[in-house]
Design a protein around this nucleic acid. Structure first.
Length: 416
RNA sequence: GCGAUUGUAGCUCAGUUGGUUAGAGCGCCGGUUUGUGGUACCGGAGGUCGCGGGUUCGAACCCCGUCAAUCGCCCCA
């Protein structure tokens, strides 16, 4: 008989367990709490969509669409794609589900996303994000509200140390287009001196040269045309209102005129919360305004702004979140009183007291095992002269509640 | 897609210039001791040395390939 091989996990996926899982849950729970404070409505979105939802909104030539999507044909020969981000799907729902009637609509969600990338620190092929969007609001207050919310989330997670908000404007469509033309002309003139990557970027995504880490590029980037010289009056005023709002809310920010976004649909405000504590994956939360997106999905022009943050990255910054010890461990030291162990543990749990039942392995070692887990209380069940005997040791926690449950519990006694 | 580093027990790791039957601690299982108790001791299970090929009388160790993980590039949260 052939040996059955255990299937290996899929590259870039993770089985999150123990302290990591606690940190993950802590991020999601904190997000849920903050999102309610800012009155964002919870939505649940499908994990897959028609491929065109992403290819149209993100742009065919972006790396995400051209080489990082998990796309497949279903049994009806339709091209579907596992979502690589939240925004496109939410925009689609806004158009197809009549959400326009709720505009301006504040929504929040979280869940898994999929990108075919090389896994490394804080980056996976199935990863998880929290996401917040305001759709149908063209005023700078919407940008401000989203940023203040993100700032509060980071504070409440206790990770604001070393995290800074980097802020920029890409201008409106006119500003952005004329800036882009000037950038291309400038970099074209020094093309031969640029890194290979940046020569490539010049064709596909010239704004990205500004982000380059290559020292050969940095000298030229310093003298590159600035967005500020191309802003229309409207764009300049819009950005001014965003920064005024942040100042009014007491949120610190840093202007980063070289900060750009990777996806095509962004306009005006672009931002990242960045840390120096996660190696190369410094961006912990990022987003911006995407006023052009709805039209690319066939909808009416609709202003919108949003952000997303990687749960794994936030969880790494949060660090160790211990798994809480049981409030009480019920130790069955004699198997003939197992039923009482089951009964009293159930009664404790029904009373809202977290309890573990220890009734396997060597009976004589069970108590020591319980002690090692450091519960707030231990209830040891044994048999003394044919009668059940229970001893309670309390080192913390709610003594009154536990003794109340024990007092009203109807003991069966040892099995015959 | 590219580069670097690392793969030995469930976990953390030893393993000499290539040389008998690959070890330790923790964890797990059983036993002895103790008996309001986190003790100590004894024993046991568990390893195709990531996988495949090569060199050699002989490979965990050397060479090639492959897979995976980690860190970085690209890209992105």
């Amino acid at each position: 008989m052939a040996k059955i091989e255990t299937p290996r996990p899929i590259r870039g996926t993770q089985d999150i367990f123990g302290a990591d899982a606690e940190a993950f849950a802590h991020v999601v729970e904190t997000f849920e709490r903050v999102r309610k404070l800012y009155r964002f409505r919870r939505v649940e979105m499908p994990v897959f969509e028609k491929t065109e939802v992403f290819s149209r909104s993100l742009g065919e030539t972006t790396d995400v669409v051209s080489k990082e999507m998990y796309s497949f044909l279903d049994r009806g020969d339709e091209s579907l794609t596992l979502r690589p981000e939240f925004t496109a799907g939410i925009a689609r729902a806004y158009l197809t589900d009549g959400w326009q009637q709720y505009a301006p609509l504040k929504v929040a969600t979280h869940g898994p996303l999929f990108r075919y990338e090389r896994p490394q620190k804080g980056r996976y092929r199935q990863f998880h994000q929290i996401d917040a969007e305001i759709i149908g609001a063209g005023e700078p207050q919407a940008d401000v509200e989203l940023l203040v919310m993100a700032d509060q989330l980071i504070r409440e997670l206790g990770i604001s140390e070393g995290v800074t908000l980097q802020l920029n404007t890409l201008g409106d469509a006119d500003s952005r287009d004329s800036w882009r033309v000037a950038l291309v002309a400038y970099f074209q003139s020094v093309r031969g001196e640029l890194s290979e990557d940046s020569q490539e970027r010049l064709e596909r995504n010239p704004l990205r040269i500004l982000d380059s880490k290559d020292p050969r590029d940095k000298a030229f980037v310093a003298d590159a045309p600035q967005i500020d010289d191309f802003l229309t009056d409207h764009a300049r005023d819009f950005f001014g209102q965003v920064t005024d709002g942040l100042d009014a809310a007491g949120v610190a920010w840093t202007r980063m005129s070289k900060l750009v976004r990777g996806l095509d649909y962004y306009r005006h405000t672009a931002f990242e919360f960045v840390t120096d504590r996660l190696g190369a994956q410094g961006t912990v939360l990022g987003g911006g305004r995407y006023d052009g997106l709805m039209e690319s999905l066939g909808g009416a022009p609709t202003p919108a702004v949003g952000w997303a943050a990687g749960i794994e990255r936030l969880a790494m910054l949060v660090g160790e979140v211990g798994e809480a010890a049981a409030e009480i461990i019920v130790v069955v030291e004699d198997d003939s009183v197992l039923q009482d162990g089951i009964g009293v543990a159930s009664a404790l749990r029904r009373a809202g007291i977290s309890a573990d039942l220890l009734a396997s392995g060597s009976p004589r070692k069970r108590f020591d095992k319980a002690v090692k887990q450091e519960p707030k209380a231990i209830l040891a069940l044994s048999v003394d002269n044919g009668v059940i005997s229970h001893r309670l040791r309390i080192t913390g926690g709610d003594e009154v509640a536990i003794e109340g449950v024990l007092a009203s519990y109807d003991w069966r006694g040892p099995a015959a």
